[in-house]
Design a protein around this nucleic acid. Sequence first.
DNA 1: TAGATTGTTAATCGATTAACAATC
DNA 2: TAGATTGTTAATCGATTAACAATC
Lengths: 219, 219
Amino acid sequence: MSDDSIKTKDKIAPLPTIRRIPSYLRLLYEYRKEGREWISATDIAERLSLKPIQVRKDMAFTGITGKPKKGFVVSDLIDSIRGFLGWDMMSDTVIVGSGALGSALIGYSGFSEHGLNIIGAFDNDEAKIGSLIHGHKVYDLKDIASVIKDNDVTIGIITVPAQAAQSVADKLVEAGIKGIWNFSPVKLRVPECVIVEKEDLSSGLAVLSVKLGAHLCTD
Amino acid sequence: MSDDSIKTKDKIAPLPTIRRIPSYLRLLYEYRKEGREWISATDIAERLSLKPIQVRKDMAFTGITGKPKKGFVVSDLIDSIRGFLGWDMMSDTVIVGSGALGSALIGYSGFSEHGLNIIGAFDNDEAKIGSLIHGHKVYDLKDIASVIKDNDVTIGIITVPAQAAQSVADKLVEAGIKGIWNFSPVKLRVPECVIVEKEDLSSGLAVLSVKLGAHLCTD
DNA sequence: TAGATTGTTAATCGATTAACAATC
DNA sequence: TAGATTGTTAATCGATTAACAATC
């Protein structure tokens, strides 16, 4: 890719860095609640079992600069991370699939802290359509295109069963969605401009299983 | 670490490899259902948008060997992967926290395919104790130690709120649990022989957010 | 001032990818 | 046989870690 554009897009931060950053943010909220003004990379590393140098490198990607001997101003760092993640702006979001997992996510009040504004849920089950789940209306999946367009929804969360996931993704894409958070276990096919992030619980379980199987300890 | 033990422990496979393997298994189950006998690394790579060489490397870690020109026998590869992950043996498991997420997990019937046998759920909410969630009994958190010991439970899934997570982890460890699948957003402190795998949904959301913010596409 | 912490530059480590001989 | 695919060895790439000067 040549740099023929006016302003060459900054290289995105390493994915491992991006994945670690929310845990820093969570710790920072704790510090803020405790009324602490400063936090150092050393503190953070200690609390999260990381190396200080790694935390410092990660921080640099958010654009913050610290003060030798003191570290970072907690509130500044919170702002910097929120800006970096885009969590200072709300993204209108729909959840497709109001089964157990979908319901659990709908009820998660922490989404607003993560930049998500839940517009509503969608399902094709007549029994659920029109009902409320944790205060959010369940709409008919048939109407999803108009709701997405009318509300400028940018993110869709897919929590439907595997066999329905691709067709739901197609509908979301057709309606102009920009990003999909995919909780189904299928690899979705979407145009390359649509971002899909797959949340794969079985990956985490696999890591746990293999580590347990290796029984690294002698007891 | 020196190799003074009788049988030096095999080096564990790379974590990224372990994380990818469940998605191979899922595809293999599809192939089996379709009655197909062979699958090649090329096929798998194509379906999951990976490079064939990466799939072959990953496969090698499971111990399977293939046949040039044909690939791998589907049923053999399934067995090999299940053995590698330890999902051919059932691990008795408890879920602590019967809120929305806990309930969703309890209801997930696919756990048996992932080597987990759910013994029951635990909560400290009087209203929930004694009730059934998706056919599984909710027990009093106070009784967790005896249930874990009596049933030889090796895995604990934590789905309680953040402020309760560490104390639950302490109880699980005290009762002799071997592994913890932690869905709470806190970094748990446990003895080094206890394996903790943290399932951090905010990491995935962070990746989605940053990629969306970078709007790599021009529309 | 002394010392802890930052930020930068260089070295190391580990995973991915490439190259290619072996094989069915 | 010809050609697709495997498995191995080597090269590349990217993230982590180390080293250290700058600074408050």
